[in-house]
Amino acid sequence: MAERRDPYPEKLAELEDLLGLIDDRNQRIDMLIETADRFREVPAEVAERPYPDEHKVPACESEAFVWAKKRDDGTLKFYFAVENPQGISAKAMAVILDEALSGAPLEAVANVPDDVVYRVFGSELSMGKTMGLMGMTTMARLSAERLLASNAGR
């Protein structure tokens, strides 16, 4: 896995460090399930079904959707929907991305690598599952990159 690039979202770094200390598979899973239990779907004022395809995560079999809304302080607030009721990993990932990236400096969000998925879930994920979770990360990062570019007048 690549070294973290600076700046890096502080809360994400803390979570990765914490998960890195957990060797027990079940303990990690239970922590991620508790995380998934905090999942809250995108509020109706942001989006309503049917969710538009441009917010759909490519290759995500859990049918995840991502929205990024600019806040007054210039950072982003992330919202998610996961349409597959069995998409528990996707819900956990959504909570992690929201809690760690919403309100973080855009430059830090733009430095989140796709392989954060392995740092969070471990290496035993299937390719399909990994692609979907990476896709969620990519969409969040791209939102920050686009806003940075817009701010810079590019």
Binding site: I29, I33, A92
Partner: peptide, 8 residues
């Protein structure tokens, strides 16, 4: 496939 599903 999803490692979280069983324990959830």
């Amino acid at each position: 496939e999803d490692p979280l599903v069983f324990r959830a």
